[in-house]
């Protein structure tokens, strides 16, 4: 009996090691990565125009939210250091550092860490199979992430994300979004694919891609200290800038500037697909007019 126990124990260990699929053999994403901005540059660097909702599968609720959104809201002290959520932040100008955390005894992969310079955000992608927190736990900008390898593709699922925006011109993202990502390494090139599902404000998942190249030297600016200032002295406490229904003065500015039908710039799922080009031909384009001034307060 003892002999069999002694003989089978190493075999069981070996079998366990072969088939329990610890994350030993996959890609190593460690290093510093810089984003490429050939794709969607106007949105990602200077920032989107007001009332440009093209290509976002928003519903009517999100559209009304966005049309009542006054950019002055970002001058409120508590909004000034508001972070892009994890579902948005990989689009922006940032430096991304990735490193692994391994169990010192077994060398199994416990977590993959991301640090993004924009807003100094630390993110942990748990690789050890732990469950997500209960629904009554707090939400954060980076949410709670668990990952697994699909071959050499790192797939990450994230929830517990704070309310933020799908586009930084007022299109809201709710605190009920879930995010699925794929990190795909091709040598010194990294493709990041994100799919955001929002049961409150999107009619279908929002799919985005971003590309990164490996940085050979870490000489960038990795800090983002943020401290609010008084941007609107004399504003009454508790005031929240917003446009009353139908009174947004910027509704046609972007459409007129680029000769796009005003209806199209209001977005929605159909504006993502090529079939929409046929509809565009029959839609009126607003006349060009000077850049709109912000309403006096």
């Amino acid at each position: 009996m003892k002999f069999w126990a002694r003989a089978t124990a190493p075999a069981l260990l070996l079998t366990s090691a072969l088939f329990s699929a610890p994350a030993f053999a996959q890609e190593d994403l460690s290093g510093s990565w810089n984003p490429q901005f050939m794709e969607d540059q106007p949105e990602r660097i200077p920032g989107p125009d007001l009332v440009d909702y093209l290509g976002i599968p928003i519903n009517a609720d999100a559209r009304q939210w966005a049309l009542s959104w006054d950019p002055d809201r970002l001058t409120l002290p508590e909004h000034q250091c508001q972070v892009h959520t994890v579902a948005y932040i990989y689009r922006g100008p940032l430096e991304l550092r990735i490193w692994e955390e391994r169990d010192p005894q077994t060398q199994e992969l416990v977590a993959i860490h991301n640090y993004t310079s924009t807003y100094e955000q630390n993110r942990t992608i748990w690789m050890d199979g732990r469950p997500h927190p209960p629904d009554y736990a707090a939400h954060t900008w980076m949410g709670f992430s668990t990952g697994h390898w699909d071959g050499n593709v790192l797939t990450v699922n994230t929830d517990h994300i704070k309310q933020g925006w799908h586009r930084r011109n007022g299109i809201p993202s709710s605190d009920e979004i879930t995010l699925t990502e794929h990190f795909i390494r091709h040598g010194d090139h990294l493709t990041h694919v994100s799919l955001v599902s929002d049961p409150i404000y999107l009619t279908e998942p929002l799919v985005k891609t971003q590309d990164y190249v490996r940085a050979t030297s870490s000489n960038g600016n990795w800090l983002w200290p943020c401290e609010y200032v008084d941007e609107a002295p004399g504003r009454p406490q508790g005031e929240v800038p917003s446009f009353m229904p139908g009174e947004n003065p910027f509704t046609t500015e972007f459409a007129a500037k680029y000769g796009i039908p005003a209806q199209a710039v209001l977005g929605g799922a159909e504006t993502m697909y090529p079939e929409y080009q046929k509809k565009l031909k029959n839609m009126p384009i607003p006349p060009k007019h000077p850049v709109t001034s912000a309403p006096a307060r």
């Binding site: 093209l54 797939t155 699922n157 599902s197 049961p199 929002l206 799919v207 891609t209 993502m272 090529p274």
Partner: peptide, 30 residues
């Protein structure tokens, strides 16, 4: 996010798979 681009069969397949993955996670995330 490439609005108004003509999708290739590959991108369509990828989109479908990706959307399925998202929907599946959304259910798991309850």
């Amino acid at each position: 996010m490439k609005a108004l681009e003509k999708p290739t069969p590959m991108t369509k397949t990828f989109q479908l798979a990706a959307i399925a993955a998202t929907a599946s996670f959304a259910i798991c995330a309850q």
